[in-house]
Design a binder for these strands. Structure first.
Lengths: 111, 111
DNA sequence: ATATACTTGTTACTTTTCGTAACCTCGTTT
DNA sequence: AAACGAGGTTACGAAAAGTAACAAGTATAT
């Protein structure tokens, strides 16, 4: 986005979180490291996008990708310190949602 | 999104915030009520999308739209209580960004 | 009455991003 | 050698976003 002079760092952070799926991926990784297939099956995201997002998050210094040469190969994704520092953000979203998202909205979502 | 069994309320909240531009619109409205043209000129968003997002946010109970019959007509958008309750979320994103978004990232953004 | 100005949108069209499903690679097991 | 399991990638149609030109409503100016 062309700078809107909000606050350059806030813009960068907000863009990261507002990129589709990133919030959910980070939510999952806050529970502990996860394998590609675990993330894929626990979120309604396709392999193509998950792969794309994990590369972007790694490039942004939010996650790491570690290869364990087991058989078959096991690859774990986990949050860096920078990524783990997002916990308060996720927590505040969860708190807001628990207080303000009501059942009608949930119903309309599940149609 | 089809339910991924994260936490239904969190999902709804995260989707709201991850929809493009919503975070920035809310950021602006936390500073006080704004007119359509003020929002449009303070964010790099087109009128078409701003109009669409404001309708969605109003439908979600986050903002209100008030018509003042001045001349020419003046229309103010502002946050509801539910919308103002998002302040801690925006604040936590800002705090994270101030600590963790470094200058290289800002440079790469402004290319 | 007609023209002009101002704000708040809307319409039509192009470009980017997303979603789906089939396919590929690499090491192991049968 | 053929099949399997994990971790992806490719190709392609669908959906969302971006852009720019235009329209509605109201008020003042000519």
């Amino acid at each position: 986005m062309k700078s809107a002079d909000l606050c350059p760092r806030f813009e960068t952070g907000m863009e990261l979180l507002s990129k589709r799926w990133n919030g959910f991926i980070i939510f999952r990784l806050l529970e502990g490291s996860q394998r590609f297939s675990e993330l894929e099956s626990s979120l309604p995201i396709s392999g193509r996008l998950l792969s794309e997002r994990l590369k972007e998050l790694e490039a942004a210094g939010i996650t790491t990708r570690t290869v364990y040469p087991d058989t078959p190969v096991r690859i774990e994704y986990e949050l860096t310190e920078k990524g783990r520092a997002l916990r308060p953000v996720i927590t505040s979203i969860k708190e807001w949602a628990e207080k303000w998202v009501n059942s009608e909205e949930l119903d309309s979502m599940n149609q």
